[in-house]
């Protein structure tokens, strides 16, 4: 099976004092569905950000989509193929309307306007968001914001989805749509979450972080 991400002995620290990630080795294969668990502050968000090059490790290697990735330029391609759902959706919805936000990624992929418009429509419909396409994120509920942020990723047809606490602030109806969507997708999944009921329905294996190390 194709390996999308492979990390070997990755160390990362935000400052000089103490490392946030130490000696992380892990892989994510195509079709893999992995739960990433651990207490608050154990480094889940930091790890997800490292996978797409927002945190550059001080030690160790990151291989992604067939190549070692080190520089900002290396990670450009990684980011187009792996969608990261941010912990706070307000960071991710920066356009004037939901539709513009969903169109942002596909336009950057260089798709022609018609294809972008079609992708926006079908993605919003798939997530039950068609009625909010012309709303601003400020007008959405927490759960709708979460789904809209997910839509911005799905519209780009990513090979992998890295989800940071996806069910946070969602009500059960949205969680059900989310579960259905994730079960249907062909993208590899790496999901940081505390929501064990949710993880049980999606993930096939799990990684547990403790103080920046992989415990199991």
């Amino acid at each position: 099976m194709e390996t999308l991400f492979a990390l070997t002995n990755v160390d990362f620290a935000y400052g000089p004092d103490r490392p946030t990630l130490s000696g992380i080795s892990m892989t994510l294969d195509a079709n893999d569905r992995v739960a990433l668990t651990g207490n608050n502050g154990s480094g889940k968000t930091t790890l997800l950000h490292a996978l797409v090059g927002l945190n550059k490790p001080q030690q160790g290697e990151i291989h992604a989509f067939g190549r070692q990735r080190r520089t900002e330029k290396d990670f450009y391609e990684v980011r187009l193929r792996a969608g990261l759902l941010f912990e706070d959706s307000d960071d991710q919805l920066f356009c004037a309307t939901v539709a513009e936000d969903v169109a942002f990624g596909p336009f950057n992929l260089g798709w022609p306007r018609e294809r972008v418009a079609a992708a926006v429509d079908s993605t919003l419909a798939r997530l039950g968001l068609s009625h909010s396409r012309d709303l601003s994120a400020a007008e959405l509920s927490h759960g709708e914001k979460r789904m809209a942020a997910l839509a911005t990723l799905l519209a780009m047809n990513p090979a992998a989805l890295l989800l940071d606490e996806p069910t946070n602030g969602m009500d059960q109806a949205h969680i059900d749509v989310l579960i259905q969507t994730l079960q249907d997708t062909e993208a590899a999944l790496l999901i940081a979450s505390h929501d064990h009921a949710f993880l049980k329905r999606i993930a096939r294996r799990s990684l547990r972080l403790e103080n920046g190390r992989i415990a199991s």
Binding site: R79, A99, E100, A103, G105, F107, N108, R113, T152
Partner: peptide, 13 residues
């Protein structure tokens, strides 16, 4: 950056 931003904006509307 995560959605491929390279300094150019496009608009759907």
């Amino acid at each position: 950056k995560c959605r491929g931003y390279q300094g150019r904006f496009f608009m759907l509307h």
